[in-house]
Design a protein around this nucleic acid. Sequence first.
DNA 1: TTCATTGTTAACCATGTGGTGTACTATCCG
DNA 2: CGGATAGTACACCACATGGTTAACAATGAA
Lengths: 140, 140
Amino acid sequence: MVNNETQLSQVFGALADTTRRGMLAQLSRGPATVGELGAPYAMSKAAVTKHVKVLERAGLLRRDVQGRAHHCAMEPDSLALAQRWVAQVTEFWESRFDTLSDYLDELQEKERRSADRSAAGKTPRKGKGRRKDKGDSRER
Amino acid sequence: MVNNETQLSQVFGALADTTRRGMLAQLSRGPATVGELGAPYAMSKAAVTKHVKVLERAGLLRRDVQGRAHHCAMEPDSLALAQRWVAQVTEFWESRFDTLSDYLDELQEKERRSADRSAAGKTPRKGKGRRKDKGDSRER
DNA sequence: TTCATTGTTAACCATGTGGTGTACTATCCG
DNA sequence: CGGATAGTACACCACATGGTTAACAATGAA
């Protein structure tokens, strides 16, 4: 019956591939046959068949067989499901007042109070403590 | 440098797992340590480490190591990237006037004209021709 | 110093995924 | 009919993924 979680995984899984995203983008500009969907890519027909099947199972694509031609069209419902999930998480995050740095400040505060309570001058704030970079530390 | 396509694949790939979606949902409600992120799931710490690493590589999560605790927070930029991609495809699709059934009608029309042009009474419209189902043909 | 806590790393295993080539079915066309 | 076209199915391969256990590193605390 494929519950919501499973379907979400299938949808996101289907989108996690450049070729399939390309196919879906193509379909967003109009219906196409399986052959037309695979034309832009240097791969065997068998591979194309597989990709289309993945999109179909994820509910992102509808297929209409007419003679030997398999006509495909985008099915936006599953995409909307994914969109809702992302939007919900983003919304929730945006509704929060504090960010990581605020959170770390909270932690520091908590730790400070704890230190004050526990002893007079026992572990005098290890040098590493305060990392108020705030600058984008995007590595790798 | 991870181009956009690669990052999109990484983001969608990261979201294609229930556990990681759960972790991200948790992070949307506020920062957490790696241990806290893994707490709801019956799996080893090593597995949790891997999941967090996937989210981090996809740019969905930022990590701030403080002592032995690894504090994690949501990084919404990558999520926004995915959201934009989905929105763009959806928009394009919605802007189209025709759907699959319209498209099939077009095909029929084309075929009809072609048949008229090619000969007077050569192949007299194979019985299968017009499949104006219109009804949802959801199978499997 | 010693012990517990937090987390990563490495090796391993089963399964899934993206690709291939070949063979096959089904349809269209002359 | 025979041949070209559109697509699927199957067996295979290399590699990624999600999980395990065990060992390790680093920190915090008694």
